[in-house]
């Protein structure tokens, strides 16, 4: 989550420059790497020691951190999504929704 927000912030920095964007892509790469490593470690942990799951749920502090998974997951793949749009351009996204654009035209006139 921390690395994810760093890449988003560098990307959206108000006085932006190309080199900041490159740093943000590096941060994003690091983010994906860390997320994958920790996800794999966590999965292995609960597969190898399933009994830890119940201990973790009962732990008053650790169990609360479960919420960090969906948070990291969201910031992770939405940056990926916007990066994809950025690299391959918004044109094809516009191409992909002609239905809505034409549908809305009569109402705006």
């Amino acid at each position: 989550m921390g690395t994810g927000i760093t890449s988003i912030l560098l990307h959206e920095f108000p006085y932006n420059a190309q080199w900041l964007r490159y740093i943000s892509y590096i941060c994003f790469g690091l983010n994906v790497l860390l997320f994958t490593i920790f996800l794999a470690l966590t999965v292995i942990r609960y597969v190898v020691y399933p009994e830890i799951w119940c201990v973790m749920i009962a732990h008053p502090a650790q169990s609360l951190f479960l919420g960090c998974f969906p948070m990291a997951f969201a910031s992770e793949f939405f940056f990926f999504f916007s990066l994809f749009l950025l690299i391959f351009g918004f044109e094809f996204i516009l191409d992909a929704k002609p239905a809505r654009l034409t549908e809305r035209q009569p109402s705006s006139t």
Partner: peptide
């Protein structure tokens, strides 16, 4: 830290 399990729904709404 009690906020941690709650914030994901806000993150999901922004996404």
């Amino acid at each position: 830290a009690l906020l941690l399990p709650i914030v994901p729904s806000i993150v999901a709404s922004a996404s």
